[in-house]
Design a protein around this nucleic acid. Structure first.
Lengths: 261, 261
DNA sequence: CCGTAATACACGTATGTACGAGTTGAGGAG
DNA sequence: CTCCTCAACTCGTACATACGTGTATTACGG
C-alpha cells in the first residue's frame, strides 16, 4: 500500500476526532494526494494510524460519503469518487430546428456528445392528474391526462427519469399515447396536431433523491438530483404538456442562455 | 408524548434493521403522520419500541438526516424538517427594465416577495484569475481581475454567496471596484461604461456543499446547493463578467423561460 | 496447468457501555 | 412571586466486541 501521509490528531482542538480525521482525508482528496478512483486507507489502517476505535473511523468516512467525495464498496474498500464526464443540457435543446431533424432531444444530444443513448421502462397510462399537474395544465378537476413515463440511459447508465402529462383530450388515440411517439418526439406530434409551440417554462429544484429515485438512477449516497418540471405553452398561451424529470446531478450541468433585455 | 404508531420489525426481511426503522419513520413523514416541525420520538423511545441498541437507532436517524428529511438539535430532539417558503429565481431577473429601476436584482426580487434583503461580507480585491475564470472571460494569463465577493441574506438568513470577476482593465478605478456599486448594481455600471449587455449564459450544477459553504449558508446536513456560474456577454460578443454563486437549494427554485423556436 | 477451496481482508450490521454537552422544566431558596 | 439550581432528558462522541457478507488472493489437489 502506498503510504498516504496523514497528519496526526490535534488533541488540543475542540473539533471532534472523527471530524479531524474526515478533514485530513478531505484535504488529501482536494489536493490530489488521493486521486480520483484511488483507494482510501482501510478502516483497520486508519484505526492503527490514529489509534482510535473503528466507530470513530467509520463516522469520519461517513462524513465524506455524505459529501459525495467517496464511495464504499463492500469487501473492496473505500474509493475516491471519480467524476464521470459531465454532459451539458443546453437550453436550446427543444428548439424547433432540432425537432425538424426528426430526433428526440435526448437522442440527438447524446449522440452529438458521442454517447450511446437508450430509453427504458416506457409506460403509458390514462389517469386523473395530481393537483399540481392539473393546475399547470389549467385543467378542471376530472379531466384525465395521458401519462408517459420512461427512463433515459447513456451507455447503459441511467441518468434521468421523466414523466410527461398531456391532456387526454389532446393526446388520446394519437401517436402520443403510443410507446414509440415517432420522429421528433411528442413535441413534433403536438405541432402536427395544430398545437404550435411557443415557449417552455422550466422550474428547477435540487434535493436529495428519494429511495426509489436512488434505485432508478443507481445513485451513490451523497449525490443530489435535479428535479425539473417543464411546461410547454402554445402560441395561444395554452399549456399542452407538463414534463416532470429527475436528473442525476453528476451526469449533467444545465445550461441556459438569457437575454439581457 | 403523542404516541406515534410505528410498525414492528419484520424479522424475515433481508433489509437491515436500521433501514426498516428508517423506512417506518420516512413513511410516517411522507404520509403526514409526522408533520413538519414535529418531534421524532427520541432515541431512547425508539430503542424501547424496537428493542434494539442505540447505534441501530442512530444509524436509522442518520439515513433520514442524509436525505434531508430531519434535523437533529442537540439537547432537544430530532425534528421533521420544515420547508421554508421557497422563492423563485426567475430567468428575467437581469432584464434591463429591472436594472433601470435602480435596484440590484437581488434587492428588487426579495422585496417584491415580501422579504427583507441584506448583503454581507463584501470583499473586493484585485488578483490573478483562476484558469477557468480566465477562460470564460477570454483573458490571457496575467491579466488581473477585480473580484467582488459577498453574501446575500433574506430576513437575516443567508441564502447565497456570490463572487464576481470583472477584468481589471474594465473595472479598475470605477465604482465597480467599490463596496457599494451604486443603483442598479454592477450591470448598470458596465452599461454606463459603454459595455452594452446582450445576454447571459448560466451553468448550473447541483452538489453537496463543501465545509465552508455549509457554514456560510448555515445549511443543515442533507441539503444540497446550486452552483451557478453566470457569464455576461456584450453585444459585440465579449465576456465582461463572470459571477460564481452558491445557492441554498431549499431557499430557491430556479425558473427559466425558453423559446420553442 | 487449471479449477477450487481455504484464507485473509474489506466493509456492513448490531450489541453494550461510558461520558460529554445542550435544553428544559420542576422545585426550592430568597 | 421571582430567580436560580439541579435533575432529567436529549443528542454527540468514543470506546470495545462480535459476527455477517462480499472480494481477492493463495495454496492445494486433481
Amino acid at each position: 500500500m502506498a503510504e498516504l501521509p496523514l497528519p496526526d490528531l490535534d488533541p488540543t482542538s475542540d473539533r471532534a476526532v472523527f471530524r479531524q480525521i474526515a478533514d485530513h482525508i478531505r484535504d488529501a482528496i482536494e489536493q490530489g494526494t488521493l486521486a480520483e478512483g484511488e483507494k482510501v486507507p482501510s478502516e483497520a489502517q486508519l484505526m492503527q494510524h490514529y489509534g482510535v476505535a473503528r466507530m470513530t473511523i467509520r463516522n469520519a468516512l461517513q462524513v465524506l460519503q455524505g459529501e459525495g467525495l467517496t464511495v464504499a464498496e463492500h469487501g473492496r474498500g473505500v474509493f475516491v469518487r471519480s467524476h464521470p464526464p459531465v454532459r451539458r443540457l443546453a437550453s436550446d435543446r427543444f428548439a424547433r430546428r432540432h425537432r425538424e431533424e426528426g430526433k428526440a432531444a435526448f437522442i440527438a444530444e447524446t449522440e452529438g456528445a458521442g454517447g450511446k443513448p437508450s430509453v427504458d421502462a416506457i409506460k403509458i397510462t390514462e389517469e386523473a392528474p395530481s393537483a399540481s399537474v392539473a393546475a399547470l395544465l389549467g385543467l378542471t378537476d376530472d379531466a384525465p391526462v395521458i401519462r408517459r413515463s420512461r427512463r433515459y440511459l447513456i451507455n447503459g447508465q441511467p441518468v434521468e427519469t421523466a414523466v410527461s402529462y398531456i391532456p387526454a383530450e389532446i393526446a388520446r388515440g394519437t401517436r402520443i399515447a403510443e410507446p414509440d411517439s415517432g420522429p421528433g418526439g411528442i413535441y413534433a406530434r403536438l405541432e402536427e396536431l395544430g398545437h404550435r409551440l411557443d415557449h417552455f417554462v422550466e422550474e428547477i429544484k435540487s434535493r436529495m433523491p428519494l429511495r426509489d429515485e436512488m434505485r432508478a438512477l443507481k445513485l451513490a449516497p451523497g449525490i443530489p438530483v435535479f428535479h425539473l418540471v417543464r411546461t410547454a405553452y402554445t402560441t395561444d398561451g395554452k399549456a399542452v404538456e407538463v414534463c416532470d424529470t429527475v436528473i442525476s446531478s453528476d451526469a449533467y450541468v444545465l445550461s441556459y442562455e438569457l437575454p439581457a433585455r
